[in-house]
Design a protein around this nucleic acid. Structure first.
Lengths: 252, 252
DNA sequence: GCCCCCGTCCCACTGAGTGGAATCATCACC
DNA sequence: GGTGATGATTCCACTCAGTGGGACGGGGGC
């Protein structure tokens, strides 16, 4: 919602990332001019950079419409963390979906956000609120709070220092409240979220640890706040997190 | 196999792509030095560029091991072409796998290669020879020949001009033979491959066209050359290609 | 026809990027 | 603990890649 384009974008690389990240989820391709506006870079420069990226298949163009290219898909599939976790998670998620009937997600932390690396739609559930590859704020989602509770105090400080952006009127924006919840979670509690990210949406999550005890990500179940008791599914989610943990390669 | 590192890599962007593409399928992370060797770029430069890419989450580092980062996964999921085709293809592929029992693939063309955007392992089949996101040579695979047969003559010329690299002793390296096969396919024939890419591996493919008749990709079935009759599954593959075509959004 | 918007190209300027060498860190083996 | 190998980071003077305002061409719509 803020969309504040804080564009330092000094180096060419930062420029490139600005361009790549200008693409939305549902775009049907962008023109050079719009791209230039979104990325906050002069048109002529964008034109030149895009030409290079197209040459490398990082972008594609169909006439004057520009799209994200195949090489990004390819590299994305190569990334180890999501790949391994996904492979391990899919069967576990299927089981969790079966036992709860709700939408199921697995996400990984990336700085002050989490990235959803797998989503499964529950049998009788609404379409999931996030797509595979989607980013979510770490402080306003159950997935985020589950992983943040296992992070270092310094990490929590960073998140707080960056400001707790408000998404709904129930979003936790008070650092003290957030810290209290995180402490509770880190003592073995369930990470829950009721309308804090999107109105009417509830979610419950548990962190996933590697066999050696390191934080890997989190698994969650979400549903409509009306009929969703955050604690009802706790045993199932906990079991899923544990099962997933056991399926992970033991040696990272 | 050839791994010839033809590294012009003048601009920073090209440098970056060299770095990103230095990552293999099964790597457990690369160090700066190895990365520098693979990318053909001085160490100090790689160090600097990697720092920037890490800052942007395009790469990750765990001590001195460097991995592909989450942002690549994220952007890869955003790329429209694979995303839409995948969504449309998965049910069709499931059906094709069910009716054939073999491994099933869907791929998109990218210049002189095809990129596999979905793979399903057949019930009784060996593990697939290519992963999602994997690249295959266009002239040495059924998938490649299926799409190439629908491309412009100029495109075929380009492929031929670039040289038909030999993968096995059955790979087609004679342009005349390739052209003859492509003509046959474009007249409605089945694109087939018997051990041309990997010894003992057979594959049969059909192009997938959009509702408006444009080439989108190809769908294929593959199996062990011993027990695999390239033509036995032709009706099933053809039906899948048609079904997939009908599921595609009509307005690209 | 005219105007408006969009993408590309041009070109003189300059500071971002470069990379060899020095430095620091870690590890292994004697 | 010394010594040498390996690997990552930092420094810094040089210079060429990248820049971007503006001109150009073209296409689409009123």
């Amino acid at each position: 919602m803020p969309g504040s384009s804080s564009n330092d974008a000094i180096g060419v690389l930062d420029r490139m990332t600005s361009i790549l990240e200008a693409f939305d989820a549902d775009d049907r391709g962008l023109g050079i001019s719009e791209l230039a506006v979104r990325a906050g870079i002069p048109k002529s420069t964008v034109s030149r950079l895009v030409a290079t990226l197209v040459r490398q298949s990082y972008l594609e163009r169909d006439g004057s419409r520009i799209h994200l290219g195949l090489r990004l898909f390819e590299l994305g599939q190569l990334a180890e963390l999501p790949r391994e976790l996904r492979a391990a998670a899919l069967p576990v998620m299927a089981e969790l979906r079966h036992s709860t009937g709700e939408n199921v997600h697995v996400a990984i932390r990336d700085r002050r956000e989490v990235v959803c690396i797998a989503v499964m739609r529950g049998r009788s559930a609404e379409r999931p609120f996030v797509r595979t590859g989607g980013r979510l704020p770490i402080h306003a989602t159950a997935l985020g709070k589950a992983v943040l509770a296992h992070a270092s105090p310094r990490d929590v400080d960073d998140v707080v220092a960056a400001g707790l952006e408000r998404w709904t009127d129930r979003t936790i924006v008070d650092p003290a409240v957030l810290r209290r919840q995180l402490e509770d979670v880190s003592r073995g509690g369930l990470a829950a979220e009721v309308g804090e990210f999107a109105a009417g949406l509830s979610c419950a999550a548990i962190a996933v640890l590697s066999p050696s005890g390191e934080l890997v990500g989190a698994v969650s179940v979400s549903g409509d706040s009306g009929a969703f008791d955050t604690h009802r599914f706790e045993p199932a989610i906990r079991a899923a997190a544990l099962a997933l943990s056991r399926r992970l390669r033991p040696s990272p």
